[in-house]
Design a protein around this nucleic acid. Structure first.
Lengths: 192, 192
DNA sequence: TATGAATGAGACAGATCTGTCTATTTTATT
DNA sequence: AATAAAATAGACAGATCTGTCTCATTCATA
């Protein structure tokens, strides 16, 4: 038999959708409560504060992104270099989807600019976390100066996420993946 | 004799500082009023609403960025290609300054995600405006596929702005300018 | 069916922010 | 010096949001 979705799971699913697509500040508790069909008291039995819900939302997003990297690893189990190239193409495709609304971590950091705010802290940590994983992939691929290349790809990818969010109509995924490969190749030849 | 700064100019100067460094939503009217040493009624004689002040803040930022491009043009009056390379180096240096806090247009767009909000609309228009100017520079440099290259540089530059804001300690300006030149060069050779 | 626990609906308090308004003080001009 | 205009300080209303609390209803189990 199917396990029914608990109230907490339903809230988290609705919050994930609303926070990502409309912004954390723009979506109030009342909105989440109504759309997940739960009472206010029930909400506050699952989450002590709104920020606690935001933290769990960001954690979900972190795990979802790590799954993308895992997917790339499984797709090309023999070569870390191929995993890296696949990841670039894969991310490019994801960014052109209509529902794409940028990087939840960058968006949350900008929405909560106070550096000690728990939402800011959690988003920053999540972003560092996933980026460490990408850097690891670059290192495993045996590319020279992996940290420098990782930094350049982080810039390109962060900007692609913003453009795909802000200027959706202009975003061309192949321009991103070609640029990423150009940067990767420039490191290969410069090592000879 | 020196013309004294008017109340409106003082408000605008304070707002420019506070909005940029702490965020538009985080800085309230009361804060701006106190720090610019003006009364609330006087403020509302110069600006009908807070959003009107935000619009003028963004307009200031737009003009400041256009001045950067103008600076690059004057520095290398003979060659648009050199102007473009100079602009990349120049922006890289600006992004590493301690006071740098990212792109005010991207930040404002993320802070006001509702696409019809006046602050969102103004920031988006300003961003498009300055980017048209960069695209023009690329066209004048005679590079092939100027729109594609412009898009790639926009991604890289947008991401560099975010990294320089969010991960200031990690930001290395030369990695940005080298990456930009790598992308520019890749267009030159691919045209042969 | 009866009973106790969990949930729903929503009122309410408290905080925060924008924008208005009033009363007092300062400034400028004749 | 007198008077009119403008600026100041800050109280206040109204909106919005989070989080608490009450009370009625539903649900599960004996």
């Amino acid at each position: 038999m199917e396990k029914k979705e608990t109230a907490k799971e339903r809230i988290l699913r609705v919050a994930n959708e609303l926070f990502y697509h409309e912004g954390v500040r723009a979506v109030g508790i009342d909105r989440i409560i109504h759309e997940s069909g739960v009472a206010k008291a029930s909400f506050y039995r699952s989450f002590a504060t709104k920020d606690d819900l935001v933290a769990e939302y960001l954690e979900q997003r972190r795990l979802q992104f790590l799954a993308n990297i895992e997917h790339a690893r499984k797709e090309h189990p023999e070569s870390s270099f191929e995993q890296l190239l696949f990841l670039m193409d894969y991310l490019a495709e994801r960014m052109k989807r209509p529902a794409y609304r940028g990087c939840s971590f960058m968006n949350t950091i900008v929405e909560f600019p106070e550096t000690e705010h728990p939402n800011h802290v959690k988003a920053l940590a999540s972003r560092s976390d996933i980026w460490d994983e990408v850097t690891l992939l670059i290192q495993e691929a045996g590319l020279p100066n992996p940290h420098d290349l990782s930094e350049q790809i982080r810039m390109l990818w962060s900007g692609a996420a913003m453009v795909a969010y802000i200027n959706k109509a202009d975003f061309k995924p192949e321009l991103f993946s070609v640029a990423a490969k150009t940067l990767i190749n420039s490191h290969r030849v410069s090592a000879d």
